[in-house]
Design a protein around this nucleic acid. Structure first.
Lengths: 296, 296
DNA sequence: TCGTTTGATAGAAGTATTCTATCGAAAGGT
DNA sequence: ACCTTTCGATAGAATACTTCTATCAAACGA
């Protein structure tokens, strides 16, 4: 039964029998049979059938909610028993927004010393993807914005507040003093793509300052933005924590962007499943510790 | 997996391999094998082994919590799909404290008219048993006291407030005016047994009034109490709602017991499992409706 | 000490699951 | 309109798993 629920979740996620089967490590006929058996056992259609996948029925949607919970709790059971057996161990899957990638090591470095048998897998994803992956049980926790976007049934631990700086090549004329959002109208900019929440936040502040920008370079990668800035007179807008790793040398400079001194909360997001598994509880403890260090 | 968790829950409840197997409709070797497989899959011992059942290990206790949740959610999934298929239907298992038995029909009578395909199974149990059965998934909901006793992870819907009357044969000298708890010291009484919460509540009020009683008749059955009262000069203390069904004729009389005019909340208790299954949600709606009628 | 109770074990029978191979229907491109 | 590709369902064989009956050994109680 639980295997079938796993396959059902995979099907809802992949929206494709073949891919879902591959993701589950079974062949397509096996997955087809599993879905059909699930439908027989529950006595309702879960998936609209045609010659291809056409989405879930309303009952399928409700069943998916239960399936996620049942499968998630089952994994929690397995994980907790594993911890009882061999202490904190296992693989902790994180997904992180690009602008928070440098913060991950604050969480993991000390954690790994205390719990050497816990492995981390860190993916860079958009905030929307992170929430979807949390729902689908593809990750154990995420590092993302805590406000602005609708969060589901999750527990959050604030870690720090994002503040923004303008980053440009050393000698750029705007680097002499703090710059206001309203001053950025004519500056050639490289920015993240508009599907990313950081960009939407920046857009919002620029719009509030009645500034319109048309960045010549858009990317999902901060590295791409910074390397462009390094080569030309382009500038970019980055959160302090994301920018500082590139400011070690003398090639780049930064100034705070003020008026307003915008802040956006970033933190750990985990599925709300009481009681928390030991590994997740430990990670949340660590996040709270990092949060206090940031305040102090 | 889920079958094995069911068997594990049954074993923890019955504390006996043979009885648990019988309860699950399998043979004892099957249940033994299931538990062993569960232990193998989870990699931990769940049950202390000897030549007989010796209780759960600490890991077994934790696993039991998860198992109850997983199995409960699985049943909810099945039930909700059944409702989607054929409307509100199925078997709703209730356990009720004896003093609230007459209230059950307030819940069920109208409910059955609206939902004729829902069957009820009503058991008379003590409040402690009700909570245990809720945990073990043996019942879907209970009707019991909402205060005084520790409730677990449950949702409650208050229905009415218990008030107490003295019940005696017509002509009994105490029936002329309301009687105080403190006046009951020398009255020959029949009461429920002390393992029942109603009796503990009554004891508490008597103790607060500095009265000691040694009932000559104790029973777990209100019918036994009333039939004794009918035959002799004994009196008994009952909640109004439990007494009124016996007061239809002229043989018995009742007076309120005051000073204080004691009240104790009674209501529906159901496992807290969001979202609620449709049948349970409907029953809770009905309980809220009954509650408002009682107030008005 | 002897009978009874309790849970574990062995082996056979039955049931379920998964695979490979193949098919038919629908989409998409030319 | 036709051909190709993609997608999911189906059939049948091999395999794995589950459950049963029968039996055993250990421990408890009289």
């Amino acid at each position: 039964m639980i295997d079938k629920l796993e396959m059902f979740i995979a099907l809802a996620r992949e929206e494709h029998f073949g891919r879902a089967a591959a993701a589950q490590g079974v062949t397509q006929p096996t997955l087809s049979a599993a879905i059909k058996q699930l439908e027989d056992q529950l006595g309702v259609m879960l998936v609209w059938r045609g010659s291809r996948y056409r989405g879930l029925t309303p009952e399928g949607q409700r069943a998916l909610d239960w399936a996620r919970r049942i499968v998630g709790d089952t994994r929690s059971l397995r994980q907790e028993m594993r911890v009882a057996r061999e202490g904190l161990a296992g693989d902790l899957r994180l997904a992180v927004i690009p602008t928070a990638l440098t913060v991950v090591s604050d969480l993991t470095a000390e954690f790994s010393e205390t719990h050497p048998n816990v492995r981390f897998t860190v993916q860079s994803k958009t905030s929307a993807e992170i929430l979807g992956m949390l729902e689908n049980l593809e990750i154990d926790a995420g590092l993302t914005y805590l406000d602005n976007e609708p969060l589901g049934r999750v527990t959050t631990v604030p870690i720090y507040s994002e503040r923004y700086v303008l980053v440009a090549r050393a000698g750029h004329p705007l680097l002499n003093a703090p710059v206001a959002w309203g001053d950025l109208g004519d500056v050639p900019l490289c920015l993240l793509t508009p599907d990313m929440q950081n960009r939407r936040i920046i857009n919002q502040h620029l719009a509030e300052a009645a500034v319109e920008v048309a960045p010549q370079i858009e990317s999902t990668s901060i590295v791409v933005l910074v390397s462009h800035v390094l080569r030309s007179n382009w500038a970019t807008i980055l959160p302090v924590r994301a920018a500082e790793i590139f400011l070690k040398g003398d090639d780049l400079g930064s100034v705070p962007i003020v008026n307003p001194d915008a802040r956006h909360a970033v933190g750990l997001v985990a599925p709300h499943r009481e009681p928390f598994t030991p590994v997740l509880a430990a990670l949340m403890d660590r996040a709270r510790a990092v949060s206090e260090m940031a305040v102090g």
